[in-house]
Amino acid sequence: MMKALAREGRWIAISLGITFAVLVLSILALRQNPLTVFGLLAERLLLKPYGLGQMLYKATTLIFTGLGCALAFRCGLFNIGAEGQLYAGAFLMAVVAPHLPLPMILLIPACLAIAALGGGLWGLVPGWLKAKRGAHEVITTMMMNFIALALTNYLISAHFHEPETIHTAELPVAAYLPQLPMESSAVNASLFVAIALAFAVHYFLWSTPLGFELRAVGSNPTAAKTSGVPVDMRIFLILVLSGCLSGLAGINFILGYKHYFEQGFASGAGFMGIAVALVAKNYPIGVIFSALLFAFLSQAGLTVQSVIPRELFEILQGLVILVVVICQNKYGGAE
């Protein structure tokens, strides 16, 4: 596996190089001095605990959704439902947690479990449809995204919102995850949960018999079935587990930052998870770094918006994905 990482490393370096070159050329084309822009980036982002903290905060959400996507992709299922799973998990947690009279030491694990459960439920439906009816997961997970979005929006507007807001009631203080001391940036202990989870997923996939089996289903479901693996059950399990991981993404905003569910609070993080997983070549540890890269581009876009249109950094995000996908197809990546 490490060998594979080393092999991929080359292409990742190349794609980063291309991205950087395009960035510099675009800055020049905008008649700005690249040094000024990088100076600004360094000053406001890299050398400033607040900027770094915001980047880590953004990365945290992306690690969760990236892991959810990577697990499914690694096991051969193109689950693009991270967005909906995120919202389902976050919403369930945000409306249930305030009613749990638990001390902190129990409440936080309970919140994590509820978020995972919500995301898992959202993965369960496509899982069941795929395993039992053969319905393609791309279609079903996409549909579940629409449902999650519309349903949470409706429930918030109709029942759960606080007056004059579009968010739910605040969680009890016992459910707060501690913020990290980075100039009151949003980054919080969810980051450690995310990183621990990345290592856990890595261990699960490469060091347990069940993880091996799930990867086998991804590699060649027919061969797995021929060797006695109950493939339908496993497909179901993969989509549920993947949903659980994405479902946890909401803890970053809800337990660690604002302490309530707000409509569209992480819009796009689920879809960005797809990109994070692709660039990480579906390696869980790689997801951490890939999430950091996308978080950096996002925060950088915000930081230098007064000099450079933020769309440039969105284009760069697309470019990274494109280059990685091209390299993968041309040189036969891990898939």
């Binding site: 347990t208 091996f212 061969a223 693996v229």
Partner: peptide, 30 residues
């Protein structure tokens, strides 16, 4: 089609279908 995982290592292919045997794994570790 039915015998091999072409993108997986040789050892993984040799293990396929036998990965739950106590010789090769405990429930939580290969």
């Amino acid at each position: 089609h039915a015998g091999l995982m072409l993108a997986a290592a040789a050892w993984e292919n040799m293990l396929l279908g036998r990965h739950w045997e106590p010789v090769f794994s405990t429930p939580f570790r290969l």
